[in-house]
Design a protein around this nucleic acid. Structure first.
Lengths: 354, 354
DNA sequence: CTGAAAGCGCTAACAC
DNA sequence: GTGTTAGCGCTTTCAG
């Protein structure tokens, strides 16, 4: 292992000068700089980032906490964050909370001890996780959810729910249902927005199929509950909003097994617009969260807090409906683009009329 | 920030003793230990992992390189690796090579400078990436591909191709085709195995729809090429093997737009058995790579090399066909489990008859 | 423009 | 059992 001392010796200068050259300090004679650079190359010197961190008080590492890595919605955000972080010269340590407060606490302790420069997180709970993040000595920005006291990057789930509702009405659906949790954090909001917009237009939800959000790829529950609901209560709707893309997929499977086809018999919309929405057949209409932007923005905000001591801020991004085949009835796939044009136009004003 | 010195002062001992207590060194009087532990708690002391790394020569960090984070196949492996690593007390730095040799080289340099204890990687190229990994001063284990000179964890893609071929024959298909790249690394192997097994059974591939593997979510090419092939040459097969699950999804979309339904008109099988295979309708038959095991095993092997100086080793895992709706014709979804039983039995011997 | 000195927080011999 | 002495490789005053 070749250290600064080695190249200092060779170049006949002190360690400090080498350090200066390497960090582009202006006050070094050009000649000296050349000499040093020469030996850096010659000896194939590489800085020791650990030593640098210890002395310099910055690691250039950020911690990233998500509830689940392999759920497309999160993995797409992770990809975006890694991308932006790398671009800015940061490495990211990826951590899976598995939605456990306990694990989250452990992870945060570890990150603190590793002296990461900052943290980006999908907190397990916007209330109970609070103390754990407050103990952190470095900036943190929350994503996909809003947490008081911390920078947050998110969309309005309430608006999202409304946007889908408007889309359904635009498509002429009258009997409308919901599949997913109605009381959990962000789900509760989208459910409320969805319901509100409909009731503002004199429509009540016909079916509400209450089921938990799929977690840790344990998806079979949704499938089961939808079938069960159909058997017990019957399906009465022309169109359903699902809590997320996976829930939508599961519901489609259930519909299919019950003899309904999408969208001819039943239309359905997802939420998130993850990879799944684009790849399944029929392609899934979904409320698009700007995943790439969430990632990029969260890194920017974090670095601004790290480097410029910026104040925490709330950052609400725009969502929009991506209309695809799953909510287009009596229209051949080829006409999707036409329908798409109509629909995106119709939903261009982000806020619902009161 | 409270350091060892602080608690040493309070406890009236030396830093070293504190260090000994914290690392459970046996030669510390019980009484002293208590005293130290008391102050550790009192002052809420937390070790500085950076300092520990610098002095102790181990970071407890491993680097993870993948070509793409958000592709379900990789994100599931990432999840498994993070899981196992966390369990073993390691953090993982996630890096996206974007399939670029250049970026891969940069990343490896950075990881080297960060003094990670080891690396797990999907190398960009099994040949051209070699020197970059050799420069690494720490152990590396390759996953999903085999790289000479390094521990590798992978399945036999050749066998995988054969297994799907056998499945198709078991299902009674005679006209069989392939969709994907035929010449690229692992794809070439699965294609070869697929073709070989069929020709051993006096069957030639009817259609070979050559198209690149979907990369960086840029999937539209597959869709386009399948449609193009259909228009120029026509589709003549009862069943197709797709290079991977995404390719299968894209092909299904194309089939659908051309008026074919899966599996009634055309059967199709995927490769990888990622989340997509389980969520789409109809559910996709696929060759299952043991994603969880790949992750777990690779961490185990890596740690064995890090801690016990174990020799690099080749680790070939078993793959198997997961039969689902997409290749089951004239059978209602409800009978899937029955068919499944038959099929898994039929494909239980991993190697094809000569 | 350059170097000497001090220190980041911890571990690892080696003494006593 | 416990403390002393040396670093790990780098950055940052402060002099000159």
């Amino acid at each position: 292992m070749v250290s600064m001392q080695d190249i200092a010796d060779k170049a006949g200068v002190s360690r400090v000068t080498v350090s200066r050259v390497l960090s582009n300090h202006p006050s070094v004679k050009a000649e000296t700089r050349q000499k040093v650079l020469h030996w850096v190359k010659e000896l194939d010197y590489e800085p020791n980032l650990i030593a640098q961190s210890l002395a310099g008080n910055r690691t250039n590492i950020i911690g990233l906490l998500v509830p689940e890595i392999a759920y497309p919605f999160f993995s797409e955000i992770i990809e975006s964050i890694e991308n932006q972080a790398f671009y800015e010269g940061y490495s990211v340590i990826i951590c899976n909370t598995h939605r456990s407060l306990d694990k989250e606490k452990n992870i945060l302790a570890q990150l603190r001890q590793r002296k990461v420069d900052g943290v980006i997180a999908v907190p397990v709970s916007t209330t109970q996780s609070l103390p754990a993040y407050q103990r952190l000595q470095v900036p943190a920005v929350m994503i996909t959810k809003k947490m008081e006291g911390f920078s947050s990057v998110y969309i309005s789930h309430y608006n999202g729910g409304q946007q889908i509702a408007r889309h359904f009405l635009n498509m002429g659906f009258q009997k409308i249902g919901y599949i997913g949790p109605t009381k959990e954090s962000t789900s509760a909001l989208k459910y409320a927005g969805f319901q509100q917009y409909l009731s503002d237009n004199q429509i009540d939800l016909t079916d509400v199929i209450e089921c938990p959000a799929p977690e840790n790829m344990n998806t079979s529950l949704v499938y089961k509950l939808v079938k069960q609901y159909a058997e017990n209560t019957g399906l009465h709707c022309e169109a359903y909003l699902a809590n997320d893309d996976i829930t939508a997929c599961e519901a489609i499977s259930a519909f299919r097994e019950l003899g309904y086809t999408v969208p001819q018999d039943i239309a359905i919309a997802g939420f998130d617009n993850s990879l799944l929405a684009k790849e399944i057949s029929p392609k899934l209409t979904a409320l698009a969260q700007p995943l790439d932007e969430i990632g990029k923005k969260s890194v920017e905000i974090l670095l601004d807090q790290i480097n410029n001591n910026a104040e925490p801020c709330m950052y609400e991004l725009e969502s929009r409906v991506i209309a695809r085949e799953s909510t287009i009835r009596f229209v051949s796939p080829k006409q999707e683009s036409l329908a798409h044009a109509i629909l995106t136009n119709a939903s261009s004003s982000p806020h619902a009329p009161a």
